[in-house]
Structure formats: C-alpha cells, structure tokens
Amino acid sequence: MNINFKNRKVNYFTRFGIYFVLIFQCLIIAFPLFLMVMSSFKSNREIFKAPFKLPATLNMENYRKLFLQSNYLRYFLNSIVVSLAAILIILIASSLASYAISKYRFPLNKFIFFYFLAGLMIPIRLGTINIMQMFIKLNLYNNLLSLIIIYSAYGIPAGILIFTGFMNDIPNELSDSARVDGCSEIGIFRKIIVPLLGPAIVVVAVYNLIPIWNDFWFPLVLINSDNLMTIPLATAKLFGKHETNYGLIFAILTSAAVPPMILFATLSRYFIKGLTAGAIKG
C-alpha cells in the first residue's frame, strides 16, 4: 500500500547510521518511563542507593499505601465517569450535527462547518474566567457535571471534523431509497447512517479520550473537594503532600501514567487517524 522510499536499497553503512539514531532516540524516550515504573517498586533507601538497578523484590508497599491510605479509587472513578459521559455527549452531538452538515443542503451549511472547525484552533482555556463565572451562577462549581459539559464542548469540533469526513464517503443512494420507502429523517440516521459509523465512532472516542482523561487545567480551576478530584489533579495534590517519599511518588506517577499508556498502545492507530483527519487526505 505504501508506495514510498522503502523500496529503495539502503547500504550497510547508512543502515547502521539510521538504526543508531533510531535506537538512541528510543532510549531517550523509554529510559525515564522505565525509571519511573521500576522505582515505584522500590523503597526510598533502594531508590537512592541503587537507582539504576532492578528492584530486588517486587515490593508493592508503595502501591498498598497509595490505594489504602488515599482516596485513589475514588479519583479513578471520577476520571472514568467524567471521561465516559463527555465522550458519550460528544459522540451523539457531533454525529447528529455532522449528518446535517454532510447530507443536507441548506443555507449557511459551509459557514456552520467552519464555525465548528474554528474550535480546533482556539484553546478553550482562554474562556476560563467566564466558564467559572457561569458554573458558579448555575450552581455547578465544584461539581463533576461542570467538567463533563466543558469537555463535551471541547471535543465537539474534532468530532464534527472526523464524522463529516467519514459521512461524505457514504453514498446518498442508501438514504434516498429509504426516504422513498417512507423512512423518517431520524429513522434514516438511526437505521442507515449510525450502523455504518463504527470505525469513526472509535476514532472520535479515542482521539478525545486522551486529552480529556489527562486534563489538569479545568479540575484545577473548577474543582476543590477532595472526593471530586480527577486523576491529574489528585496526582498534583499527592505529589505535593509526599514530596520526600520517592517510592510513593513514583507509584503515584506510575498509576496515573499506566492506564492511558495501555489504552494508547492498543488503540494508537485510531488516535493517529483522528490526529491526521482533514490534514492528510487518504
């Protein structure tokens, strides 16, 4: 499929050079992560005395402390609730809007599309002052609902870009014949379009999940109760609290890092599709 520079012969000397650079970069990326995970299984003493050595035993003490003595499972649950709810809203709102933009001709069609796309270039945090004022007024300050709403608004532009690109490739004949058969407009969307959206749904979900799961700014500004914290905010709080206990801190960082990394390692091709949607055709 890839017609590119790969079918060109590369001599041994060049190949050695290429591998040297690629492996060197690999070490630069992987070593800090390796150090983080490894140190989370060590005691403070071990971390200082033998920082590069593998842990002598698989010491779970740091994790035991983290999960038993802090509200960690609660933070995790908060992150899951916020992310899933926001992703669900993004999927529904942006697939519906994309259907209208992609499949109907109406005045301002193009304008509305670009109005949504503008959101990809604007950092939503520049409106934080009014967002905070609004949520205080709505009595949603220090409430997970405020995060869900903000992340939904944040994810809709990318959702619309990905969904419209996908729907433009669905032929109109299918919906036209259903319309002749007397199917309603909502029926066409539900019964004909949605079943075809499978891959696009995964792309939109994965592409938005990573930044939403990792966001620190909005919890920092909108949440102040301990039992409403999401993982990134809790990580900062716990980091400040245990700054001298290195083993525990590495367990905190590893616990925050591992779930998105596993997700990413398995689903990164969908993330990449979302990232390059619109930018690169084909």
């Binding site: 970069q25 690999c26 990326i29 992987a30 992560l33 990573i210 799961w213 990792n214 966001d215 620190f216 993982i231 990134p232 990580t235 900062a236 960082l253 925050a256 890092a257 998105p260 990394m261 997700l263 990413f264 390692a265 990164s268 990449i272």
Partner: peptide
Amino acid sequence: IYFLPTALSVIV
C-alpha cells in the same frame, strides 16, 4: 515507542 509519552498528562 516515540508516540508513547503522548498518552501521558503534562502534569505526570
């Protein structure tokens, strides 16, 4: 591997 850190929160 190069893409892996992208999954992490800036804070981490």
